[in-house]
Amino acid sequence: MSQQWQSTVEQLMSNSPLKDLTDNVKTFLVGSLRNLDVVTREEFDVQAAMLARTREKLELLEKQVTALEVQLK
């Protein structure tokens, strides 16, 4: 697309009601997403890793309890 044509399209878009609609939709979406209870992927990965370690510890403790119960019988 030529520079002049691109400039004309950009000018028409900036003066168009469509621009206002686009801005309003973006504002609405950003506001809606902020109200959701979400976390970043990094935070999710950290929590998933912590949960995996906790499960491993729980499994180990369950085995130890089972072994102690066997000893008491």
Rank of each mutant, 00 (worst) to 15 (best):
V38W: 07
N24R: 14
E59K: 13
L18A: 12
G31Y: 01
R55D: 11
V9L: 14
T54R: 15
S14K: 13
L12Q: 08
L21I: 10
N24V: 01
N15M: 07
N24K: 15
F28K: 06
Q64V: 06
T8E: 15
M13D: 07
F28T: 09
T66A: 15
M13L: 15
D37G: 01
K73P: 00
D20R: 05
M1K: 03
L36V: 03
A67N: 05
V30K: 14
L60Q: 12
V39T: 13
K73Y: 04
L58S: 09
D37M: 06
L12T: 05
A52F: 02
E69I: 03
K26V: 06
S16N: 06
L18V: 08
D45H: 04
A52M: 01
V38F: 08
Q3G: 01
E56D: 12
M50N: 14
D37T: 07
T40K: 02
D45E: 14
L60D: 12
F44P: 00
E69S: 06
V39A: 14
N35C: 02
N24T: 07
N15P: 01
Q71T: 04
L36I: 03
N35R: 14
Q4W: 08
Q6H: 10
V39M: 10
K63G: 02
R34K: 15
V70Q: 12
S2R: 04
G31R: 10
L33R: 14
L18W: 05
G31I: 00
Q6N: 13
T8N: 10
Q47C: 06
M50H: 12
E69R: 10
L58M: 11
V30C: 02
A52L: 08
V65W: 00
S2I: 06
G31P: 01
V65F: 05
M1D: 06
E69A: 03
E62P: 00
S7V: 00
L60I: 12
F44A: 12
F44M: 07
E59P: 00
L33Q: 13
E69P: 01
R34D: 09
N35V: 00
V70G: 09
V65A: 09
L72V: 08
V39C: 06
V70P: 02
S14T: 08
L51G: 04
T54Q: 15
R55C: 03
T22R: 09
L58V: 09
Q6L: 15
L58G: 01
M50C: 02
T22H: 09
V9I: 14
P17W: 06
T66Y: 07
R41Y: 03
D45F: 05
T40Y: 04
L36P: 01
V46G: 01
L33Y: 13
K26E: 08
Q4L: 15
M50V: 10
K57A: 13
L51M: 11
Q6V: 11
Q71M: 10
E56C: 01
V38P: 00
S7D: 14
M50P: 01
L61V: 11
L18D: 06
